[in-house]
């Protein structure tokens, strides 16, 4: 029960887990204890941050499904599937991005669990792909002289929707997953993204990508995170 409280404390504050003191004992016991063949487990769930933000923020609509499958002892194949519809004001420009994304990759669990527990401290890689459209809503023109009052342009050759755009990127992530009650897990992951390629809209740029978040002009890096609630379905092969 004590472990459970520690873990609950950690995930609430995003602080460094205080597992230092447990380690020495675990190592010595490990020699004697038989490492059980871990059962295959399929875990799926949703990101909690995005639906909450959809309710709170007017210009945001998003949803993300997550899943992972244990394929080996500490190795998982992971997947995230999401949808985003976001309107942003960037300097003098107001635009909307709408689209879906898919991220596929692997997670490696670095944490040695005590017997009967199934928590994770993991690192992972993802390959992400998005299919989206960009719409320029309105903007004010950039000018070095200011004779006439600034006009908000909402109807011009540039205020249009560019459909059928896509982007590909690579993600490196670190995260934790904590078992809260039987088969339910809460997880948090932080991600660093690197843009690989993109299809740019006509007379505009991909200033924001669903799944990747803000794209800067100078470099191709971005960051993201998710906060998930997942349910695990364990299944064993062979005899019970």
């Amino acid at each position: 029960m004590k472990q459970w409280y520690i873990w609950l404390c950690c995930i609430s504050f995003f602080a460094a887990p205080i597992w230092g003191q447990q380690l020495q004992d675990n190592d010595s016991i490990g020699v004697i204890a038989i490492k059980k063949e871990a059962p295959m487990a399929l875990r799926f769930g949703i990101d909690l941050y995005r639906p909450i933000r959809t309710q709170i923020e007017e210009d945001f609509e998003g949803f993300e499904l997550v899943g992972d499958l244990k394929v080996y002892n500490d190795l998982y194949v992971a997947l995230e599937l999401g949808n985003e519809n976001r309107t942003l004001q960037s300097e003098q420009l107001n635009f909307s991005t709408k689209g879906n994304y898919l991220k596929l990759g692997i997670d490696y669990n670095m944490y040695d669990n005590w017997k009967g527990m199934n928590n994770q401290v993991y690192i992972g890689l993802r390959f992400g792909n998005s299919l989206h459209q960009q719409t320029v809503n309105n903007y004010t023109l950039y000018s070095t002289t200011h004779f006439w009052p600034e006009a908000l342009i909402s109807n011009s050759n540039a205020t249009k929707t560019s459909p059928d755009l896509s982007a590909q990127w690579f993600e490196v992530l670190a995260g934790i997953k904590v078992q809260i009650i039987h088969n339910f897990y809460l997880g948090l992951s932080l991600r660093l993204n690197r843009l690989l390629s993109q299809k740019q809209p006509d007379n505009f740029n991909n200033l924001y990508l669903p799944g990747f978040n803000k794209v800067t002009d100078e470099n191709n890096f971005g960051v993201g995170f998710n906060y998930t609630l997942t349910y695990s379905i364990p299944f064993r092969f062979g005899k019970k």
Partner: peptide, 28 residues
């Protein structure tokens, strides 16, 4: 879990958290 791995993970997480709201000043 070994202590150095511990520390590395903490540092990595903190860095990523910091990056999240870090925005390079876009100046025209």
């Amino acid at each position: 879990m070994k202590a150095p791995k511990d520390f590395l993970f903490v540092v990595a997480s903190c860095c990523l958290l910091l990056f999240y709201n870090c925005e390079k000043d876009d100046i025209c």
